[in-house]
Amino acid sequence: MQLLDIKNLTIELPTEDGVIRAVDKVNLSLKEGEVHALVGESGSGKSLIAKAIVGVLNERWRITADRMHWRGVDLMRLSPEKRRKVVGRDMAMIYQEPRRSLDPTAKIFEQVAESLPDECFKAGFFGRKKERKVKVKALLHKVGIRDDERISSSYPHELSEGVCQKVMIAMAIARNPQLLIADEPTTALESTTRAQVFRLLKSLNQLKNMSILMISHELEEITQWSHAIHVLYCGQMVEAGPTKKVFTDPYHPYTQALVKSLPDYAHGLGHKAPFYALKGTIPPLQHLPIGCRLGPRCPQAQRECVATPVLVKSHGHSYACHFPLNREKKKCNPC
């Protein structure tokens, strides 16, 4: 069953110099128990999409979508209060800066305990305090925090960034959500904690059948265990499909550049060998090119690219490009 089904999600920012379209007609669908990765450079609108799904974007952003279905219910048509309830029950989000996402004046225990839903308590009013303690302890243990006594009685500013991230994850999984949106959960962490966090998310997916929408820069890590990948460039979805397919033969020049930019240590790098990268830089949001936004940087670009390419879908692998790569039919007997 489709868990999340988004069609033509557009996020715009009205400014004095006209409307900036930060996310342009993005489609996304996610099945139960799948791990999807949202990949792109910073500023490509990944976090905006995540926040739009959860509904925590500022009021100055204008969000439109043909549909944003969550298990058959259109989130866009719900009242804010109802939507908050649905989102709070079924989804959870991990933010980029864990320490700033925790209330500086509340102890960790209170913050974790607060995210436990009321339904999960079996005891009556009097046993609840004890039960809450047990549950918080279990949650902290689950995310790999050993000295729960000390952590739960500290304030966020007394803890390291990694521990804060784990606390965030503990809060996120407290309600047993069906979808976990992880917005660059590992950018602020050092590599050992990073590996721990990835392992934790992976086990959550495998053991609890939790779907995960992963926003990350860690391409190599992501390719290992995500089922599908969505590549964004400047707010446009350039390619989406099963991870393996996208990475082995990408159709879109940007995806190809992304794959090529991963240094291949297995075959050794030459002394001072240049890394592969597209020429130019990402345009700022005020100066987005018309048509295909990759146009000015694309090695394949031709005159047709001034028109926005339509998303073409074949075998669950969709791409938006006028001149896709790797599309000529493979011959049966190459000779």
């Binding site: 989804m91 933010y95 996402s101 004046t105 607060e114 309600r175």
Partner: peptide, 25 residues
């Protein structure tokens, strides 16, 4: 602030957010 967004994503209602998190800070 971000922690208010977190609290909202946690599923707390408006009253809880304002009384428990916003006011104290």
């Amino acid at each position: 602030q971000n922690y208010i967004k977190t609290a909202r994503a946690k599923g707390l209602n408006r009253r809880q957010i304002i009384l428990d998190h916003a006011l104290r800070n």
